[in-house]
């Protein structure tokens, strides 16, 4: 199924993608990035991602740089 690539060091931690994901596969990471922000993290253990790219559409920093389906 789908998969996304997040650039950890570009993410500023606004979590608009967490709100946008219809399957709720994104969450706040527990480890900070280079700038000290806690970026969004993609966790898809059951292969639920449908590759709708809504997270990438909502991301204001183009931190979600690739979406595969």
């Amino acid at each position: 199924m789908g998969r996304i690539v997040i650039d950890r060091d570009v993410c500023k931690g606004c979590y608009l993608c967490v709100e946008a994901c219809p399957k709720k596969l994104l969450k706040k990471s527990q480890t900070p990035n280079l700038h000290g922000d806690f970026p969004a993290e993609f966790v898809d253990e059951k292969n639920e991602c449908i590759g709708c790219a809504m997270c990438a559409m909502n991301c204001p920093d183009v931190a979600i740089k690739e979406v595969y389906r």
Binding site: R3, G51, A53, A56, M57, V62, I64, K65, E66, V67, Y68, R69
Partner: peptide, 11 residues
């Protein structure tokens, strides 16, 4: 896998 979205080239 097919790429459905990527960072725009104009950026």
């Amino acid at each position: 896998e097919t790429l459905v979205y990527k960072r725009p080239e104009s950026l």
